[in-house]
Simulated assay, not measured.
Amino acid sequence: MVSETEGDASLSGLLCLENETLFKENEEPVDEEDCLQMLFDRETSFGFKKTEPSVFCNYLKYARLEAITWILKARAAFGFRSQTAYLSMLYFDRFLSRNSIDSEKTWAMQLLSVACLSLAAKMEEMEVPALSEFQIEGCNFDTKTIQRMELLVLNTLEWRMSLVTPFAFLHFFITEMCKSSPPDMKVIIHVILFTMKEINVMEHRPSVVAVAAILRALNQRLTRKALECRVNSVSFCGFLEIEDVFTCYNLMQKLELREFNMPETVNLPDLDDSSTSGAVCTKRRRLTK
């Protein structure tokens, strides 16, 4: 029988490899345009914005909302970065787009939440808690059970785990669009994380979510024309479709007004702005095929 420590360590050893970085010793950093192009290419390759959107039934909507609520609470408790939570939901939605879970198996949905957050943490965090610490109230999953679900997720997603999140784009877009008055970063993070509650994150390109969240933090009353002018001010903006950005921006507006009633500037001390570093240019533990 494998102990919890040995089991978790062996799985991590098999799956988590040091990511290649865009900066190498004694070399100049990669040009920003090349870095962005790489991100855009990765967006496309992972199939964001499918032509036929997934429609969740009422049961899945409720189970998904519970999963997000737990993931956000666990993120705060463990001190994970915001993109770890978003990445876990990318895994979650991508898994459900390929596999179904029966409505009576609520424990399976909870186990999926745990496995997705654990895998995302192994991708993004320097220190990952033992699997025994990833627990949901009312459930007590042992380490081997979580590991089996992790492997099911990995196989379902074909071991393609290095997905792009909106946080990888924030620094560039903020620099380009907010030269005179930078927006409140905590508001941007809040909008991105809580937008996950209403959308299948695999159906919206991370770059679009990033731009829409920045614009939402800057101005809550942009017309389509005003939004288009803002987007067109960005270098290399050709990859962005205005209609997609406007649709996402309007969704964020409705969510904020209906659910959170947030003013344009709020204090959210539990959301860290360190998560916006962009992340493709830093060393992290990664899962690779």
Rank of each mutant, 00 (worst) to 15 (best):
I188Y: 06
V231S: 01
Q220I: 13
S233F: 01
I199W: 08
P166R: 06
I174S: 04
L170R: 00
I188L: 11
L227Y: 02
S162G: 10
A226F: 05
T223C: 06
I199R: 07
M202F: 00
C237R: 06
F246Q: 01
R160W: 07
V231K: 02
R160I: 09
S235M: 11
A217V: 08
I192G: 00
S181T: 13
F169L: 05
C178R: 03
V209G: 00
K179S: 12
P182E: 12
H204I: 15
T195F: 06
F239V: 10
V211Y: 01
L222V: 06
C178V: 02
Q220A: 13
T165Y: 07
M185T: 09
V164F: 03
V231T: 04
P182N: 02
K197S: 13
K179Y: 05
R221C: 09
C237W: 08
A217L: 08
D184V: 11
K225C: 07
F239W: 11
F246W: 09
F194G: 05
P182V: 10
S181E: 14
R224N: 09
M196S: 13
N232K: 15
E198N: 13
S207D: 02
V234E: 06
P166I: 06
W159A: 07
K186Y: 05
N219A: 03
R230H: 14
M196F: 08
V211C: 11
V208N: 02
E198M: 09
F173L: 09
M185L: 15
V234C: 13
V164S: 05
S162V: 03
V191W: 05
E241Y: 08
A213Q: 04
I174G: 01
R160N: 11
P206D: 05
K186P: 00
E228S: 12
V208Q: 03
H190Y: 15
M177G: 08
A168P: 00
F239K: 14
D244S: 11
R230L: 04
M185Q: 13
S181M: 13
L240R: 03
A210R: 06
F172V: 00
R205I: 09
T247P: 00
N232A: 09
V234W: 01
D184I: 13
F239N: 12
S235F: 04
V187N: 14
C229S: 15
V231C: 08
P182W: 01
T195I: 07
F246V: 03
F246P: 02
L170A: 10
E203K: 04
R230A: 09
K179V: 12
L157P: 01
V187R: 15
F194E: 12
L170Y: 13
I188G: 01
L222N: 01
L240T: 06
M177A: 12
N200H: 11
I199H: 00
S207N: 09
R230Q: 14
L193K: 05
F194D: 12
K197F: 10
C178F: 04
F167M: 08
P183N: 09
V209F: 01
T247S: 10
M185W: 11
M196H: 02
N232H: 11
S162W: 04
F236S: 10
K225Q: 14
P206V: 05
I242S: 06
I189D: 15
G238C: 10
E241M: 08
R221W: 10
I199V: 15
